[in-house]
């Protein structure tokens, strides 16, 4: 479904991704964990084309988002094709990035009508059903500034779902939230996992990673150090590196 092959990326002199390969299969929930600066968010952003890579290859549903050309430089898909391909990916950001000038409903309707050319009625009924799913139907006509962080994040999840992505990505979706609000967002993500949605979650929530993810990837210094079933990576047989990290993360 999604494949990254030997992805390298540096910001100036500092290498952030030093040759990362991973794959995600249909219906799989993958949690990416690691310290701040380990490259986990950058990896997710590269896969969503929010950062460009220096070399390597990323494939979405078998189609290449980027490959490395003969000259060693990355070759990206362009314009329309690129946008069409990226619609297979959905992204939920740490700080929601809702459109503040649009009501909750409009946040969900506008991308559908503009990008997917859905009719206003179709877009609205889709939006309302997703708002119901995240438990915010009564907030449809509110503006984001009147919602709590947890509510904003649930709206952002609903907005991403409106576009029917094949793979839904979360970039530290609860890092800006207090424990109570974290809980309400995580239960929405958990419900999506139960539907067998393909998801990649960059997170600091170790319990969540262990409970919800099928697979856990642990990154350190721009490399994947561990990649395996959640119970192996985070379970009793976990490696020294994870033990140290998890200990710090109060696990």
């Amino acid at each position: 479904m999604l494949q990254a092959i030997n992805v390298k990326k540096s910001f100036g002199e500092t290498g952030v991704l030093k040759g990362v390969s991973m794959r995600v299969s249909r219906g799989e929930v993958v949690a990416i964990i690691g310290r701040s600066g380990s490259g986990k968010s950058t990896l997710l952003r590269c896969m969503n084309n929010l950062e460009t890579i220096d070399s390597g290859e990323i494939r979405i549903g078998g189609e290449p988002l980027v490959t490395t050309g003969a000259d060693g430089k990355p070759v990206y898909k362009r314009d329309r094709e690129l946008r069409t391909l990226m619609l297979k990916m959905g992204m939920v950001f740490q700080d929601y990035n809702l459109f503040p000038h649009c009501s909750v409903l409009r946040n969900l309707v506008m991308p559908q009508t503009l990008v997917l050319r859905r009719s206003a009625e179709e877009a609205k009924s889709k939006a309302l059903s997703l708002l119901e799913k995240v438990g915010l139907l009564e907030k449809a006509n509110e503006y984001p500034c009147n919602l709590s962080g947890g509510q904003c994040q649930r709206v952002a999840i609903a907005r991403a779902l409106c576009m029917d992505p094949d793979i839904l990505c979360f970039d530290e979706p609860t890092s800006a939230l207090d424990p109570q609000l974290t809980h309400e967002v995580l239960s929405v993500i958990r419900a999506l996992a139960d539907e067998k949605r393909t998801m990649i979650v960059v997170t600091h929530e170790m319990n969540f990673a262990r409970d919800v993810a099928d697979r856990v990837i642990y990154m350190e210094n721009g490399l994947i150090v561990e990649d395996g079933p959640a119970r192996d990576v985070l379970g009793s047989s976990r490696s020294e590196a994870i033990r140290a990290f998890a200990g710090e993360a109060n696990y």
Binding site: N48, N49, L50, R83, T84, M86, L87, M89, G90, M91, F93, D95, N97, L98, F99, P111, L114, V115, L116, R159, A160, M163
Partner: peptide, 18 residues
Amino acid sequence: IPVGQHEACQVLGFTKIQ
């Protein structure tokens, strides 16, 4: 305008003009 607004537009598939 926060860069996140542009990023949100991009991941939702908006064209630059939209």
